[in-house]
């Protein structure tokens, strides 16, 4: 059981490493957020779960469950707030971007106000 937990922890840490690599390699802030949010969320879930099932004897599984739920709910919210703020302050998307509906709608709304 302890070995099983250790392997799950290792997988989780690999996902955390992938999240950090994604932050490092992606070309603009939105793509960085994509890698940063998803990979770190699943990585944290695996890491904490692996550690807790490797040490079942201490009886603190409940706290780990609360921590996992907390990370799972707040991580997307914070990255959503950051993405919204980044778009609001006018940070450019990368050159490889296909389309930007939000920018188009913002320009349309300004035209209607005038």
């Amino acid at each position: 059981m302890e070995l099983f937990g250790a392997i799950i922890t290792l997988i989780g840490s690999l996902f955390l490493l992938l999240g950090a690599l994604g932050i490092f390699r992606m070309p603009d802030v939105y793509n960085r957020m994509q890698a940063g949010t998803k990979a770190t969320t699943l990585g944290t879930i695996f890491f904490l779960f692996g550690i807790s099932i490797g040490h079942l004897e201490c009886g603190c599984f409940g706290k780990i469950v609360v921590l996992i739920l907390f990370v799972m709910f707040t991580n997307p919210v914070s990255s959503n707030a950051l993405a919204r703020a980044a778009h609001f302050t006018g940070i450019k998307l990368t050159d490889r971007t296909k389309k930007d509906d939000l920018e188009k709608d913002n320009i349309k709304n300004k035209g209607e106000e005038k």
């Binding site: 937990g5 922890t9 290792l10 840490s13 490493l17 999240g19 932050i23 890491f47 550690i51 490797g54």
Partner: peptide, 23 residues
């Protein structure tokens, strides 16, 4: 055996903190 794997996982996490710090 399990302890070695746990420690490796912790070191990988530490390395990823370093990479994020560079960014």
């Amino acid at each position: 055996m399990a302890n070695i794997i746990y420690n490796t996982a912790a070191i990988i996490t530490l390395v990823s903190i370093g990479i994020a710090f560079i960014r």
